[in-house]
Amino acid sequence: MRRHLAHLSDEALVALVARGDEPALAELYDRVGRVAYGLAFRVLRDERLAEDAVQEAFLAVWRTAARFTAERAKASTWILTIVHRRAVDLVRREEHRRAEPLDAEPEEAAATDSAEEAAWLGFERDRVQAALKQLPDAQREAIELAYYGGFSQSELAERLGQPLGTIKSRMFAGLARLRELLDEGAEEGSWKPQFTS
């Protein structure tokens, strides 16, 4: 039924989705859904929540496809970014839902440490995301697909239609610059957690 869509690029499919083409959305899901689920599961560590994140992300793709700009990112990167945001939102929602007033029990100290650690991890995640946004698009895309999408460098080369050496140099340069940006942020007096026992 969707065989006529198989030859289209992901970007062309997003354009069709923007016009309300449901088969185009289904074709996008077939192409990106497995990687999207893997990304969501890595963030959430829960199958049900990962499925929810992917479902919410593809609903967002359906609603916002008209805003996609092919010049800014590949369609698959755009979709995986939405998936990652939904997964992080679900982590926060679940943490908030599970948060209950603490009774004065021995578990209180462990819960406090856990909350501080979660806050620190959230802070670090935000710092990394801000630093990633400062990278050139090609470097950012390669790093995001490798680390969030789970692609190997060989798979990236094939997916992006670039020589393996180009992918390796993009990732090397991107990671080196990312390290510099994160170090600069630390030197500027970024907040550091005070874990107390």
Rank of each mutant, 00 (worst) to 15 (best):
R3N: 12
R3E: 14
H4R: 11
H4F: 10
D10A: 11
A12I: 02
L13T: 00
V14C: 07
V14H: 02
A15N: 01
L16Y: 02
L16A: 04
V17A: 07
A18P: 06
G20P: 08
G20K: 04
D21L: 01
E22M: 12
P23T: 05
P23Y: 00
A24W: 00
L25Y: 05
A26N: 12
A26W: 07
A26G: 10
E27N: 03
E27L: 01
L28G: 00
L28F: 00
Y29K: 00
Y29H: 11
V32S: 02
V32L: 11
R34F: 10
V35H: 04
A36V: 07
A36Q: 07
G38S: 08
A40D: 13
A40V: 01
F41M: 10
V43P: 07
V43A: 11
V43E: 10
L44N: 03
D46L: 03
E47C: 11
E47K: 15
R48I: 12
R48E: 15
R48H: 14
L49H: 09
L49S: 14
A50V: 07
A50N: 09
A50Y: 08
E51W: 11
D52Q: 13
D52S: 10
A53Q: 06
E56T: 05
A57M: 02
F58V: 05
F58Q: 02
L59D: 08
A60L: 09
V61C: 07
W62P: 06
W62T: 06
W62Q: 03
R63H: 14
T64Q: 15
R67C: 08
R67L: 14
F68K: 04
T69Y: 09
T69V: 15
R72C: 07
R72H: 14
A73D: 11
A75C: 07
